[in-house]
């Protein structure tokens, strides 16, 4: 029986981790740790992280880890996979990294059905840099660069999994989970990573996650914003699941 409540694949030396109190991104990584444990892939995988709060996870796991410029984690991961096809590559990025500066990489990686697993945190803002507007910011949601709230003129909230479901092959796994639903997200991760292991190709899980610091929310308000407001615009579920 383990003495702690931490996933076995978490690096104990770097705990407590560097994420803010109540961070949904950290919760998503705890559940990823559990998935790594249950699939028993700690020694076979490569964890790739972006710039953004995701970078705070560079020492999260006892897993070989790579990292590069903001938004470029996917091509780095694809390159790694091509050089070492037996590695299980899991890329972790924010919504700024994946849907804005690195959107072209996400698009092309998905279109090519590259056999990597991408986990993208949707916290409706650019968190690391102080809460600016992101592609995923909700309409009327206030950010430091949209002080009156996002208007339609700044674009509609961006639905990544829905777009990817349109452009990917039938072998791709596409889902949206939420960090506050432990069992469901755990299953999504496991299916996504298995899709890569079983050689079907690309897999993607967007994870709705709280950012209490930039949302300026307490515990209950954080949960409500993620589970009610965000989930209304970003429906949770599997969009493509070849494994069925």
């Amino acid at each position: 029986m383990p003495e702690t409540a931490l996933p076995k694949s978490w690096n104990k030396e770097s705990k407590p981790h560097k994420f803010c109190p109540g961070c949904g991104q950290a919760l998503a990584l705890k559940i990823l740790g559990q998935a790594i444990d249950e699939l028993d892939i700690q020694k076979k995988m490569i964890y790739a992280t972006d710039i953004g709060c995701s970078l705070l996870s560079w020492s999260m796991f006892n897993v070989d880890t790579i990292q590069t410029h903001h938004g470029r984690t996917l091509p780095l991961s694809v390159g790694f996979k091509k050089a070492k096809p037996e590695a299980i590559v899991v890329s972790f990025t924010g919504d700024g990294g994946g849907y804005a500066i690195g959107a072209q990489h996400l698009l092309n990686t998905a279109m090519r059905n590259d056999p990597i697993t991408v986990i993208l945190i949707n916290n409706a803002n650019y968190a690391m840099t102080g809460g600016q507007l992101a592609p995923t910011t909700l309409l009327n949601q206030k950010t430091t660069t949209a002080p009156k709230g996002r208007e339609l003129a700044q674009g509609k909230p961006f639905k990544g999994p829905e777009m990817l479901a349109q452009i990917t092959s039938e072998d791709a796994h596409i889902a949206r989970g939420i960090s506050t639903n432990y069992q469901q997200l755990l299953e999504m991760y496991k299916k996504a990573i298995s899709n890569q292991i079983e050689g079907r190709g690309f897999s993607f899980v967007e994870v709705i996650a709280m950012c209490p610091v930039n949302w300026h929310t307490d515990a209950q308000q954080s949960l409500d914003f993620a589970e009610i407001e965000m989930a209304k615009i970003y429906p949770i579920g599997e969009l493509k699941c070849p494994q069925k």
Partner: peptide
């Protein structure tokens, strides 16, 4: 409580 804790600070059995 254990599942929601982002820091692994609670364990329930």
């Amino acid at each position: 409580c254990m599942q929601i804790c982002p820091d692994g600070a609670i364990k329930v059995e």
